Amino acid sequence: MSRGTLTLVGDDTAKLAAALLAQNRAEHSYYDGPRRCSVWPQPADTPMPDTAPVTAEHFDG
C-alpha cells in the first residue's frame, strides 16, 4: 500500500517496523486486511527495488 524510505538511527528494526505498521494502519484505516513491513539496508546511490529483496526482514501486523 505504501512505499518509501527512512533512515534508521540505531539498529532497532522491530521498533521501526512497529511504528511504520501503526502509521500505515492510521493512514489507511479503510483497509482491514493484513499488513507487512519489510526492512533492509539500501545504499543511497542505488534504485529502490520493486519488491523487497530476499535479505529483508519482514514484520506482519
Rank of each mutant, 00 (worst) to 15 (best):
D45Q: 12
C37V: 03
V39P: 02
F59R: 05
D32C: 03
L21T: 14
D12A: 09
R35L: 07
P53K: 08
D32R: 06
F59M: 05
D60W: 06
L20S: 04
A52H: 00
Y31T: 01
S2Y: 03
V54I: 02
Y31D: 12
Q23D: 09
N24M: 08
R35V: 09
P49Q: 07
P53A: 12
A19M: 14
L16Y: 01
T13I: 09
T13P: 00
H28G: 03
D11V: 02
P53R: 12
T5Q: 15
R3N: 12
L8Q: 06
A19C: 13
T7Y: 11
D11F: 02
H58P: 06
R25F: 10
S2T: 14
T13L: 03
S38E: 01
P53M: 07
A26M: 08
A22M: 04
R25D: 11
D60E: 15
P41D: 12
Q42G: 03
T51I: 09
A56T: 05
T46V: 11
S2A: 13
F59K: 04
A17L: 03
W40K: 05
G10A: 06
A26F: 04
D60L: 08
A52Y: 01
L8W: 08
R3G: 14
T7Q: 15
P49F: 05
H28Q: 14
N24I: 11
D45E: 13
D45H: 11
E57L: 10
P34E: 12
R35H: 04
A14E: 10
G33E: 03
P41T: 00
A17Y: 06
A19Q: 15
T51R: 03
A56R: 04
D45V: 05
A17S: 06
V39S: 00
R36F: 08
L6V: 15
E57Q: 15
H58S: 13
A17G: 04
S2I: 15
D32P: 01
L6R: 15
G10W: 04
M48N: 09
A56C: 07
P53E: 07
W40Q: 11
E27V: 09
P34C: 08
R36K: 15
G4E: 05
A22W: 00
A19D: 11
A26N: 09
H28R: 11
L16D: 00
P43F: 02
M48Y: 13
L20A: 11
H58T: 14
R25E: 14
R25C: 09
V39H: 00
E57N: 07
Q23K: 10
A56V: 05
M48F: 14
T13N: 05
E57F: 04
P41G: 09
T7P: 00
D12I: 04
D50E: 15
A19K: 15
R25P: 00
E57K: 13
P49N: 06
S2Q: 09
L8V: 05
K15Q: 13
Y31C: 12
P49K: 03
P34Y: 10
A26E: 14
L8P: 00
A22L: 06
C37L: 04
G4Y: 08
R36H: 07
D45K: 11
T51G: 01
S2R: 13
